[in-house]
Nucleic acid binder design. Structure first.
Lengths: 221, 221
DNA sequence: TAGATTGTTAATCGATTAACAATC
DNA sequence: TAGATTGTTAATCGATTAACAATC
């Protein structure tokens, strides 16, 4: 069960497996074979088995996979069996949207604070969470368990915010600013670059008429 | 200049080139070699040259690339030289955040309408755009040029909304609902699955201490 | 011209798919 | 037991990197 050097292609797919298994679970499906799942997900059965076997043998020959068991195990692999405390830096539209998105809590992600520099939003209440001043960031991190910081500040301020967060001890950054953060190796990050996603969509749209073969399969992240 | 069957790995990287070139342009940099750019972007020079040469020879031997020219050309490839009219379906937090994000307009994406089923938000004014009833969706699309529809409705409603949009003639969908839409081949899409991004971050965080080699390079989209 | 750097072909590497023996 | 389906090894495919001749 000791995971090492799993390829990032595999890790990218795990949440999607998790999502499909969750849906099957909701439908009270007990077992599923890699073949059945591959049809639903539009991938090869081979890929599913290869991916899962990076983490262990979760199936049973002649039977397939127990949906609930596999769902739980992938959740565990993704770290969803623990609570992750999230702070949001930047209480603009996107920051507020994230704070309001209660659905994350179902997966163990708890937004515990929001920070901003703008006096006009400091003090504002978002789903019971009061927007704090950036001046309180350091002390808050020191005094509370914070696992993940989401950066939703303008591009120009992102590098400085990231540097501060690192200095205050944050180990995981969810970056929404349209820039590449330069982080020390022990700090992990995920980028959500909305503008880039929109540009790719624009590319596909522009080329859709010419080239129907590739672009069609709407592809994600 | 006729693009065909470009690999999606290449297309994913184009907006990032565009971003870096834009920053160079802001700094009044005139020319750059693939080697210099590769250092800045932390990729290989070979990859940059290979990627660009899918679309044509934009450089000059012994000189490198003219920043402004290359920026313009990549913009053209991505379809940023035209206006794309965007509607947003779902005026919740995320939909409103997107509508408020004026930065997209700089790239030619104009939000021209927002729709919702909730009477409480219908009529609300967001940056000069009034939230409309979903009942007006069909007629609006018929009477206006709409290129892209962003779906920011709850998961349960996404499939129906997508089917309606397709029926009304929409050819590009920017999907934020945590589900895979089933679309006809002539309709292109891009998914932004925030929950999946957050799960990957959780995975990296959990494995960061054990495995410092892979996870460190915060990887995007 | 000499030096630099592209465009492009060839080599390598990694990821996906196919095949099948193991086994429930 | 016979049938089904996994786990895993081998084959294929595609993407990345290296090398270098072309050329500005």
């Amino acid at each position: 069960m000791y995971e090492r050097g799993i390829s990032s292609a595999v890790i990218k797919r795990l949440p999607r497996y998790y999502r499909y298994l969750g849906e099957l679970l909701e439908k009270d499906v007990i077992r599923i074979s890699s073949k059945e799942l591959s049809v639903k997900m539009n991938v090869t059965a081979s890929q599913i088995r290869q991916d899962l076997n990076n983490f262990g043998g979760f199936g049973q020959q002649g039977y397939g996979y127990n949906v609930e068991y596999l769902y739980t195990e992938i959740g565990r692999i993704l770290g969803l069996d623990r609570q992750n405390h999230v702070i949001i830096i930047g209480a603009g539209n996107l920051g507020q949207a994230l704070a309001n998105y209660a659905d994350f809590e179902r997966r163990g992600f708890v937004v515990c604070a929001i920070f901003d520099v703008n006096p006009e939003v400091i003090g504002k209440d978002i789903r019971g969470i009061v927007v704090r001043s950036m001046e309180d960031l350091q002390s808050f991190i020191a005094e509370n368990k914070v696992d993940i910081a989401a950066i939703t500040v303008p591009r120009q301020n992102a590098a400085k915010v990231a540097a501060d967060l690192v200095q205050y001890g944050i180990k995981a950054i969810w970056n929404f600013a349209p820039t590449d953060l330069h982080l020390p190796p022990e700090v992990v990050s995920e980028n959500v670059h909305l503008a880039e996603s929109l540009m790719r969509l624009s590319y596909k749209l522009k080329n859709a008429s010419e080239d129907l073969s590739e672009a069609e399969r709407g592809d994600g992240d």
